[in-house]
């Protein structure tokens, strides 16, 4: 399969990439790993006039472990997220999630920024950044802004990014001691995407949940935070009954997507089962 013809520019800075986006308001697409865009180009589901390659933009690369935050450049590949010891020492959920994502070659090329900005409703990283309470740093012609992950995902393949803005980094507050994480998903057998994926961060104190946060992907038009279930768990022990109740609550409050592989009712059940399993894992 061969994409429709397009022009190509390799941008060397964010400023240049943003200018190119502004100058081509209808027909430009950013490309980094290209592992969502290229298949779409080959199927001619997308036919931009211009591809702006941002792989060489140094300012959005790399992982920094700061005093209060961890900063992940948007160009960081899934493999780099999995391989980084400093990152996984703080947030082991990155390795846990990356391992479940696509396959080694795709992980070597695809980027977390691309995954988040594309906002596939079945992508894995959206659930993780939601559970970690991440802030997404966005750069545009008029400057920088930071958006909580919770406000970033708007709809299917739709985010709060304006056409001339670029997701630059993911900034995650460092966790309190003793916070533990889990990511679980029911993997679509063909695509590897999440039919349902659940990311959790839980901190226990004196036998009860001190803080909990839950990110869900795959179930609805866009990844979301399971607030009620997390609030229900706070102050309670992770007993079987409490876990079952939180899972039931989340499942019943979720208007699930339906497709040929997973009707809404089945997806809602997967939400219940996967949250239950993830919490059980963390209770042990």
């Amino acid at each position: 399969m061969i994409p429709a013809a397009f022009d190509y520019v390799r941008a060397s800075s964010l400023t240049q990439a943003i200018e190119l986006l502004r100058d081509n308001p209808d027909g430009a697409k950013l490309v980094a790993g290209g592992h969502t865009l290229l298949p779409a180009l080959k199927l001619r589901l997308a036919a931009p006039e211009l591809l702006i390659d941002i792989r060489s933009v140094a300012e959005i690369k790399g992982i920094e472990i700061g005093e209060t935050h961890v900063k992940i450049g948007a160009l960081t590949t899934h493999s780099e997220l999995s391989a980084s010891e400093p990152l996984n020492n703080v947030f082991p959920i990155f390795r846990e999630t990356a391992r479940l994502l696509a396959d080694p070659q795709v992980r070597n090329r695809g980027t977390i920024g691309g995954s988040l900005a594309n906002a596939d409703p079945a992508a894995d990283w959206p659930a993780v950044v939601l559970a970690l309470g991440a802030q997404l740093e966005i750069v545009g012609a008029t400057g920088r802004r930071t958006v909580p992950a919770e406000d970033f995902f708007l709809d299917i393949f739709t985010t709060t990014l304006a056409p001339d803005e670029i997701l630059a980094s993911i900034q995650i507050p460092k966790p309190k001691t003793g916070t533990r994480y889990a990511y679980r998903k029911i993997r679509h057998p063909a695509s590897g995407f999440a039919v349902v994926g659940v990311a959790i961060a839980v901190r226990m104190l004196d036998g009860v949940v001190d803080e909990a946060s839950i990110g869900i992907t795959g179930a609805t038009n866009h990844a979301f935070v399971g607030k009620e279930a997390a609030e229900f768990l706070t102050g309670k022990a992770l007993t079987r009954d409490n876990i079952d109740e939180a899972a039931r609550m989340l499942s019943e409050n979720t208007e699930c997507l339906s497709d040929r592989y997973a009707p809404a009712e089945y997806r809602a059940n997967l939400v219940r089962v996967e949250l239950g399993r993830a919490l059980l894992e963390l209770s042990q």
């Binding site: 592992h35 080694p104 070659q105 070597n108």
Partner: peptide, 21 residues
């Protein structure tokens, strides 16, 4: 994965990379 090659030392699928990239 039949098209797997190494680019700068890591395995990637060359059907999903542009030559210009």
């Amino acid at each position: 994965g039949a098209c797997t090659v190494e680019i700068d030392g890591v395995a990637v699928k060359s059907c999903t990379v542009l030559a210009v990239m």
